[in-house]
Write a protein that binds this DNA or RNA. Structure first.
Lengths: 123, 123
DNA sequence: GGATGTTGGTTCCCAATAGATACTAGGGAT
DNA sequence: ATCCCTAGTATCTATTGGGAACCAACATCC
């Protein structure tokens, strides 16, 4: 029935990509870098409530996946710039569609949550 | 600079939606239900390696958000059907674009990972 | 001249979450 | 009687996330 790579099979590598997208911090980093190259602490300041650890970890994963590139300059203190690769740029476009959906439909989602919490399980 | 709801602010509800999309199981459920209405154990069998607990939890969240609807029938044993709501259907379309990206670019991602793991931090 | 702040991280610890396993109820089939 | 089916829940543990402290090397403040 499924003629394409089966993302529902845990062994399928497509699932790995899906798992990466399923990282909220990665999504936010991609969206920010789509607009401009940023340094580590600039990213940290812009993404409210992200910890250094998670930012560092997220950037490392994205770099490993070839989605962003890291450039360090031997200034004092050291300067590190992160930017999207061409591959990352194609993903950022797709991810932007998700944030647009979120912004467009957040009202409906919140209303559904209120209805659900009041006990109305209506469709 | 940002004229739209600020997803980078933790207090912005848009971020909640982003967090929901950032759930790998939710994404897989949405994709499956886009094609047909399915029962609990059918979903469980199709999504390789999901546990009963996580499926149950994921379905409950999606229902609360108004993205899927649950219908129980008093058969023996009880039958429970899950299907997309109109709202969920609009999201499933957007999410499908992500899986298409994953399937199209998985090769590039894997090659980047191999390069990174060999120590070539090249852009 | 010592305290503090900057850079981009890493390490440690604890709380929260994910996942595996077992259990429930109310039957049906063997 | 015993095992299986349904759709979950309860419990326990493994993994992960987040907070805070620490690092080097310098610049500035007082």
């Amino acid at each position: 029935m499924l003629h394409r790579p089966d993302a529902f099979n845990a062994r399928c590598p497509t699932r790995q990509v899906l798992d990466r997208i399923g990282d909220k911090w990665a999504v936010l980093v991609l969206i920010l870098l789509e607009q401009e190259t940023l340094r580590f602490n600039e990213l940290r300041r812009r993404i409210d409530s992200i910890s250094q650890k998670m930012l560092s970890q997220t950037l490392k994963s994205l770099e490993r996946d070839g989605l962003i590139s890291r450039r360090a300059f031997a200034t004092v203190p050291v300067t590190v710039e992160y930017s999207l690769t061409p591959l990352g740029r194609t993903l950022a476009g797709t991810v932007a569609a998700l944030t647009q959906w979120a912004e467009a439909h957040i009202g409906e989602v919140e209303e559904a949550q209120r209805r659900y919490d009041r006990g109305e399980i209506a469709a």
